[in-house]
Computed example of a mutant assay.
Amino acid sequence: MTTRAATDARRAAVLGSPIAHSLSPVLHRTAYAELGLTHWTYDRYEVDEAALPGFFERLDASWAGLSLTMPLKRAVIPLLDEITPTARSVEAVNTVVLTDDGRSIGGNTDIPGMIAALYERGVEKVETAAVLGAGATASSALAALSRVCTGPVTAYVRSETRAAEMRGWGERLGVAVRTAGWDRAAEALRAPLVIATTPAGTTDALTAAVPERPGTLFDVLYDPWPTALAAAWSARGGAVVGGLDLLVHQAVLQVEQMTGWAPAPIAAMRTAGERALHGG
Rank of each mutant, 00 (worst) to 15 (best):
A64R: 05
G279R: 07
T86L: 14
A262Q: 13
I105N: 05
H28P: 06
L247G: 00
A9W: 07
R121N: 09
F218L: 13
T259N: 08
F218Y: 14
A129N: 06
E49G: 07
L118P: 02
T198H: 05
Y119Q: 12
A231L: 14
Q254A: 15
L23Y: 03
S104L: 10
W63P: 05
I195K: 01
T38R: 14
V240Y: 10
T2V: 11
T2H: 11
V248F: 09
T3W: 04
G280S: 11
A191I: 04
A116C: 11
T99C: 06
A208M: 13
T2N: 11
L72Q: 00
A130R: 02
D110K: 06
G280V: 09
L229D: 04
E171L: 08
L246R: 03
K125E: 12
V76R: 07
G54R: 12
T128H: 14
V175E: 02
V252L: 06
A92C: 11
L253F: 01
W225S: 09
A129F: 11
A235F: 10
A117V: 09
A138K: 04
H249Q: 15
A264P: 07
R236S: 14
P199I: 09
A186V: 08
A196E: 07
P53H: 08
L189Y: 12
D245K: 07
A5F: 15
T197G: 03
L15F: 11
A180I: 00
P152K: 09
A176I: 04
Y119F: 05
G122C: 08
